[in-house]
């Protein structure tokens, strides 16, 4: 999987490493901004009231 991505990135090893780093940061950003806020209410930490559960 990661090997496949690495092989398909353009440029030499340095450029590939740079693009990989940017891709990884983009993935982390999407996770923190969109995926985790969506997943978080599915866990119990939000239930602090006595009526609306």
């Amino acid at each position: 999987m990661y090997g496949w991505i690495w092989r398909h990135l353009p440029g030499n090893a340095w450029l590939k490493a740079l693009i990989s780093l940017i891709l990884a940061l983009a993935v982390v950003y999407v996770l923190f901004q969109y995926v985790f806020p969506w997943a978080e209410p599915l866990l119990p930490f939000n239930d602090v009231t006595v009526d609306n559960q």
Binding site: V28, L31, F32, F36, A39, E40, L43, F45
Partner: peptide
Amino acid sequence: TLIVLFVVYLLFWT
């Protein structure tokens, strides 16, 4: 890695 990131999100980022 995903799980570790999620824990970081919950404990630190929120």
